[in-house]
């Protein structure tokens, strides 16, 4: 590669997109360093796909700027398309072509020379492990293998960046784990990844995460930064995990208690955010209605806590 290596592979500055009167994305500013995995979260319709489509050069921004690998999304869309891979949330390969025919089709689309094609085919087949299924029709593969095939096709031209729009939606947990192992491997090879997901455990694995809501990027940072953020756990507050017999009753009580700022159920546990000044022992006794078997311990917030708290704060701010 002769062009300069950019440390920041994706950069947007106040990137905005309107559809008619509707503002789908509002002034998104973020940057993604080389070889990192950027996780984008947010409810359906928050603008995740719109952002990806703009970064891929298929949708023109209304205002603001964006660049991928140093190419402007508005002016150099074609240059971007040659250097990125894209994997959509639904299986978008040809069901009536075999796995290897799909891979060869994309090799031809990207204009890979015949000599190099063999080498690239072998590389993506080895990486994704699709070897045993090469002659199977795309439509006859299971969910996990479809995604691996899609990844193989997206990687055939050795892209520097891959955009993955909910790559693990609807596939089984083992296949999900395997796919993420693959993504880590790619990241080690220097490929930058931009992933949207609904799964918190996947978000935890990202080097950096952003949370989109109503077209606005309301959270941006590394998972650790976010969890330690003062906005999530202020200095005058403490976070506890409580286990007791009657969780629903405890949750109802927690919501009416003054010292409790927030309460959420996490499986068999209740997470509460309390004033630092309150005595946790007394608080828990009151919370559980005198359950002597109740236990509690101090915990750090999860990413889900982060997103719930920050999106509520955002809703409150928008409402006022």
């Amino acid at each position: 590669m002769s062009e300069p290596i950019f440390d920041t592979v994706i950069r947007t500055d106040q990137l905005t997109r309107d559809f008619g009167d509707f503002r789908a994305l509002s002034e998104i500013t973020l940057d993604v360093p080389r070889a990192s995995i950027f996780g984008l979260l947010g409810p359906n319709g928050a603008g995740k796909s719109t952002l990806i489509r703009m970064l891929c050069g298929v949708l023109k921004p209304t205002s603001g700027r964006g660049s991928v690998l140093g190419f402007d999304v508005r002016a150099d869309a074609e240059a971007i398309k040659r250097r990125i891979g894209y994997m959509s949330q639904r299986f978008s390969l040809y069901a009536d072509l075999s796995a290897i025919e799909n891979i060869r089709f994309y090799a031809m689309i990207y204009g890979i020379s015949t000599e190099r094609r063999r080498e690239r085919e072998d590389a993506v087949i080895a990486l994704t492990g699709i070897g045993p299924y090469l002659d199977r029709l795309g439509g006859h593969l299971s969910g996990g293998w479809k995604q691996r095939l899609a990844l193989a096709c997206a990687l055939i031209h050795e892209p520097d960046v891959i955009f993955l729009d909910e790559p693990t939606a609807g596939i089984d947990p083992v296949a999900r784990r395997d796919l993420w192992d693959l993504l880590f491997e790619l990241s080690h090879q220097g490929v930058t990844m931009f992933v949207t997901t609904h799964y918190m455990d996947e978000a935890e694995r990202c080097s950096k995460v952003g949370y989109l809501q109503g077209g606005e990027l309301i959270v941006l940072g590394t998972p650790n930064e976010l969890k330690n953020s003062k906005r999530v756990t202020p200095d005058d507050a403490r976070r506890y995990e409580v286990s007791c017999r009657d969780l629903p009753a405890a949750l109802a009580r927690a919501k009416s208690m003054k010292a409790v700022r927030d309460a959420t159920l996490f499986g068999p546990m209740l997470h509460v955010l309390t004033d630092a000044s309150a005595n946790p022992g007394e608080l828990v006794l009151e919370l559980t209605g005198g359950d002597s078997g109740a236990e509690f311990r101090s915990v750090a917030p999860t990413l889900e806590d982060v997103f719930v708290i920050l999106s509520r704060a955002e809703e409150a701010r928008a409402a006022s």
Partner: peptide
């Protein structure tokens, strides 16, 4: 949609 993100 997949084709549109390629240089085709």
């Amino acid at each position: 949609e997949q084709l549109f993100v390629t240089p085709v």
